[in-house]
Amino acid sequence: MSVVLRLQPFDRDLECEAGETVLDAVLRGGLQVPFGCRTGGCGTCRMRLVEGEVDDGGGALALTPEERAAGWFLPCVTRILTGGVVDAGDLELREHVGPRAHATEVVRNERVTPEIHALRLRVLDPDGLQFTAGQFVNVEIPGGTDTRSYSIASAPSRPGELDLYVKRRDGRFSGLLDGRLAPGAPLRLFGPFGQLRIRLSHRPIVMIASGTGLAPLLSMLHDLADHGNQRPVRLVVQAGGAGELFALDELAAIAAAMPGFELVTVAAPTRTGALADTLIGAIGDARDHDAYLGGSRWSIEAALPVLLQLGVRRRNIYFDVFTPAVP
């Protein structure tokens, strides 16, 4: 059974099929709204419910409890239960043209830890791929139309060459790391996507990374260094052991270029309580700081209360959640 959803501000009526997400209904209706990860992690597609009932199944991690209470929801993970009205706010509802595709080829594919590969891609368009530090791209799985999301780890000042970090698993894309993704292999990207970016302020910065969640933070660090950043920056990297650390040369170069930068590595614990204790020691006083997080949903959910406890305002905590795609 379908229900009718009215989209403000232009009063467009959309039919939502049972079980369909609001985002799917919007796109099927020929409209485009900004969206990114499609897993409730990046917050790009946020809208506000005016009337009706919705269910996000607890998947809208990028929203605070206050925002949810005020009616905000993420259409990519939300199903509409009754007919209703949704305010798309200042999002521009345009005819759907699809995200821009970019042809690239693999320049480097190197295993940097037992679990992580560094992938460097050359963008074939002479203008490169313009992006903001913190954004991600959707990489098309060769031979199909499905995509996987990866944050860009390189600096926006190098739009012709993108660095991605890919975690090895038996997925449809990561499964190709040992074979098809050799130098010279073509790859098609869509994007950039995502709202994560460095916010302009005077506050010192604390960053917390786990696994490939370091990627968007690396890009942001490069960008800060490129722009002569004067704000103190402390990066806390969680890793199981020294063998799991990667991009250390890059981080050393960033430290040389940015005097206020400090790298702290901590062991990745196996249970939440231990993580909190470790983080509290590694972060120190974080009152009036901006915080940026990159990593799995588990690691971000563990870090959020720690940061709040240490005095970071909720509004000043920014993150992208890394969610594994279905293989």
């Binding site: 916010r199 302020s201 009036d288 305002r313 509004r315």
Partner: peptide, 15 residues
């Protein structure tokens, strides 16, 4: 002040 001057004005408008 953090809310309106820093986050809204500087972090949003000026950014």
């Amino acid at each position: 002040w953090q809310e309106w001057v820093v986050d809204d004005f500087v972090g949003g408008y000026l950014d």
